[in-house]
């Protein structure tokens, strides 16, 4: 166990790296969200405000600190290998946008 310590800020604060419009477009594409130029511009300044706030955290010296993924230090419980689920495709597909022959349909995928 690493002894308790108050956060120490690194002597030299990292310079806040502003996002660019290209970053916004790249990320919007990765996240599959259509975004036009006006929206991209508007969101860019908001995102930069947020990342300016986030930069405070980046300045903290965290050498030797384990990343914390979960609130509690517990481990994965394992399920017995048994089939417990019955066919419910009719109910599930009743809310689907486009189904034919029990298949979900999407615009043609080209491999």
């Amino acid at each position: 166990m690493i002894p308790y310590a108050a956060p120490i800020f690194k002597a030299s604060l990292p310079v806040f790296m502003a996002l660019t419009l290209d970053d916004v477009r790249r990320v919007a594409h990765l996240a599959r969200v259509a975004i036009d130029d006006a929206e991209a511009r508007a969101v860019l300044s908001q995102l930069n405000d947020v990342f300016r706030l986030v930069a405070e955290m980046q300045a903290v010296d965290t050498a030797g600190v384990e990343p914390m993924s979960h609130a509690l230090d517990v481990t994965q419980r394992l399920r017995a290998d048994a089939v417990t689920e019955a066919d419910q495709h009719a109910a599930f597909q009743s809310v689907a946008p486009h189904v034919e022959g029990d298949l979900y349909l999407v615009p043609k995928v080209i491999e």
């Binding site: 790249r26 995102l47 955290m57 903290v60 965290t62 993924s69």
Partner: peptide
């Protein structure tokens, strides 16, 4: 959408350690 873009950015290649891992470490603090 704003949060999806923020989240996608901090997980994207080259930023993960500086943002996500660092945030998890500070979370422990």
């Amino acid at each position: 959408k704003r949060r999806i873009l923020i989240g996608t950015y901090v997980l994207s290649h080259g930023y993960y350690d500086a943002y996500y891992i660092q945030a998890q470490k500070v979370r422990r603090l």
